[in-house]
Amino acid sequence: MDKNSPTSGTITSKMEQRKEVVPQITDLPVSYGDTKIVLLPRDPWWCFTYWEIGEQTKQEIKNLYGENVRTILRVYDVTNVENFDGKNANKYFDIAINLQTNNWYINLPETNRSWCVDLGIITAEGKFVTVVRSNTVIMPRFGVSPLTDSQWAVLQREFERLLELSGIQMIGKGSFDIAKLMKERWEELLAISQVSGFVSSGFVSSFRQPEKQQIVAKEFYLKADTELIVYGETLPNAKLYIFNEVYNLLPDGKFSVRMNLPDGVKEIPIKAVSADESMQQQIVFTITRKSEKNSV
């Protein structure tokens, strides 16, 4: 990009700030000292959760259960459950996490259900203890309802025709956003323009920008993304570091970590240190993800 690129609004930062009156924008607090977990729906298949554990709570856990505990997210299906008390869920599943992270995207096994999450610990004896419970989320519906209205009844065949007329085949295939159309045009122009003189960049003053990576096409589509699971084992009493952060081992010394894998080169250093710190071993994975999109 040439130096005259008008790509972004950085003019503001180049301008001299009138520091005497402008309060400095500081980085936001790393934590607010709360112990809480919040669950948010992203789409019918995914939830996002973030949490925070206060120092006092951490200390209490340590005092009660010692250091050798594992942290997990216990995700409960609480569809139609009134007054959920931790025991009356329809079902649940666990996700091992470590407290170095403070958020997680949860892939749900079923659509059109309600969910709630406990951040909890598994004690050395294998007992689950809830540290904090989230709000309950009713997920956005996916698919047409099986219920018909007696007063406004519609026959199956008629309904199918109606869905087609209503454009059901286009659901979720892009927002028809202004800028998306413009972005596609811009990229096309960039690809075919010979003279770069005119071209510094597209969006000088756009209202709404399109998505970075458009993975949805017109009539036919393909969506794909990747996650990475790193797993292995060491001696149960060893200390395990991934990205220089401590990970808690399962009681048998195994570990398994799931992480997001975007485009680019990612180095994942995994290090085990023996209990007496006299020995250590390291394995470094270098993983490259490169996306190529072809359509014919």
Partner: peptide
């Protein structure tokens, strides 16, 4: 959005129209 009604409960008699 269209599926707000198409996926509504019960089934919409007139689709989005």
């Amino acid at each position: 959005e269209a599926h707000g009604i198409l996926y509504g409960e019960p089934r919409p008699r007139y689709g989005v129209f």
